[in-house]
Amino acid sequence: MNGIHDIGGMDNIGPVNIEKDEPVFHEDWESRVYAMTLATMGAGIFVTDEVRYMTETIPPADYLTFSYYEKWLYSLEHMMLKKNMVTREELESGEVSAPELTAGFEAASLERMAYGMKNRMPVFVDAESPPRFKAGDAIIARNINPPHHTRIPRYIRGRRGVVEMGHGIFLLPDTNAHGGPDKPQHVYSVRFSARELWGEDAPANDSLYIDLFDDYMDPD
């Protein structure tokens, strides 16, 4: 989706507000929203790509004015509604009126979350699928404009790059964010020169590296 979140390369967004000795959370509610999002994800209600997409659907004016954890709160509330864990009436009242929605549901235990916080996720292995590209290969990032979730930002579409390294196989976010089907495929780090992206005024030696799924590129 060509949404407001795809903001790389935009001008006039304002200065970077650097806070000295910033706390991890500025207010308690931020930490609760953060933890509830992780715990509901850990319980298997949704996957990361789904919640990323939910955040991308925040109306643009709100996206630019919400604080970081206000975005998370929006996404968590809407995800709970979408997954039928709560009703709108319950969200508004804070009172349980539809207990049947979550009858028998098993919340993520601390042990389960601690495992995920401290252990390596299994790497997706598919021996049937050798990588299509290798380091040094010239590629063109596809000029695609899907209406759904995607992780190919606008600023590299149609640009020429060179594969730097392979990262292994991951699930394509474009389908993973929308309930499948699973599309495991290779991901590569691809280098684009700053001049390829931003024109001849860009510094000659500078470059941009980005991780691209197989479906995001063609051989050059």
Binding site: M36, A43, T102, A108
Partner: peptide, 28 residues
């Protein structure tokens, strides 16, 4: 809103307080 959501999700068994506290402690 956050207080209401946490109380709702806790009461509905979607999250539990011990898990939330443990997550916050880990990252904080």
């Amino acid at each position: 809103r956050v207080r209401a959501l946490e109380s709702l999700l806790t009461e509905k068994g979607v999250v539990n307080r011990e898990t939330l506290d443990g997550i916050v402690d880990h990252y904080e």
